[in-house]
Amino acid sequence: MDVQQLAFEKTVNVFINSLSNYFLKLTKKPIKTYAPFVKEPEDLIMKECTGMIGISGNKKGLIYISGDMGMFEDLIKQYVGLNSPTANDMLDMAGEVSNVVAGNVRETYGHEFMISIPVVFKGTPDRLKFPDDVPIYVIPMSWNGHEAFMVVGIK
């Protein structure tokens, strides 16, 4: 494994820790993550509901958190206390999860690690943007019976 790949995998672990902390702290239920794998952007198939954050400053790239509506519905019921969330509420929650996961990474990378406001979408868009020459890691996860994944493409 070369030095660049090792550094990238350390970055991926920082995001995994942030994602784990989010669900455990708010729901008292841990996530389970599975072995990350590399994927080309054109081969990515997103789930029903995705939140995306752009990264700039001392790192450049994007992260996506993608899950089925049911996962975000469950999270809203447990955390927000809303019993009948709408599809827009679930998309908003996907954006908020991605915002918090990316924002918490500043504890490691400092204030020069800049994050965008969330962009949310349903299904797989025509084109997913990533910086050139960046390995794109897909980190599968499950939480409370729901399967989801986080995609990290950062340099």
Binding site: V100, G103, N104, E107, H111, I115
Partner: peptide, 26 residues
């Protein structure tokens, strides 16, 4: 806020914020 670095927290407190909570907030 989700921005969990100390710099941003101190900046907000200097500019007049009375409290600073990091998301995720219980």
């Amino acid at each position: 806020t989700a921005l969990s670095d100390k710099y941003t927290g101190l900046e907000a407190l200097k500019k007049g914020a009375r409290e600073y909570l990091y998301k995720p907030v219980t």
